[in-house]
Nucleic acid binder design. Structure first.
Length: 100
DNA sequence: ATAGTGACTATAG
DNA sequence: GCTATAGCCACTA
């Protein structure tokens, strides 16, 4: 476990209910040490082990690129269950963006 | 140790 | 708005 990974996991764990954040913000909050891509990799790699709410992490467009066809449907469901409005399949970042 | 890979972002057309 | 390209660097095998 690297420090950066711990930092990312910590940030993800602190995302409040009903909010989302972006990979870039996580990267910046973790020290901008690597890039958004690494945040995505770490998040995905650790989501299984640490049970992270990866559905609360979206890209700058407010959406996610589904790894599986089912993934984005699950994300939509989970976000909707948390009172996050989806517009055109995207999260309204102006309203739901959370910054650590 | 080395090589391959990627749930992204910024820029350009 | 969209697609294409380059840069990024930790994780996994």
């Amino acid at each position: 476990m690297q420090a950066f990974t711990r930092h990312v996991i910590s940030i993800i764990s602190n995302i409040p209910h009903g909010k989302v954040t972006t990979y870039g913000i996580i990267a910046a909050s973790a020290g901008n040490h690597c890039g958004a891509r690494q945040v995505a990799r770490i998040l995905h790699s650790s989501s299984g082990k640490y049970n992270l709410p990866w559905h609360r992490v979206v890209n700058v467009k407010g959406e996610i690129s589904p790894r599986k066809s089912m993934s984005h449907l699950t994300q939509k469901q989970l976000l909707k269950a948390e009172d996050v409005s989806l517009i055109n399949g995207r999260v309204d970042l102006e309203q739901f963006l959370w910054i650590p």
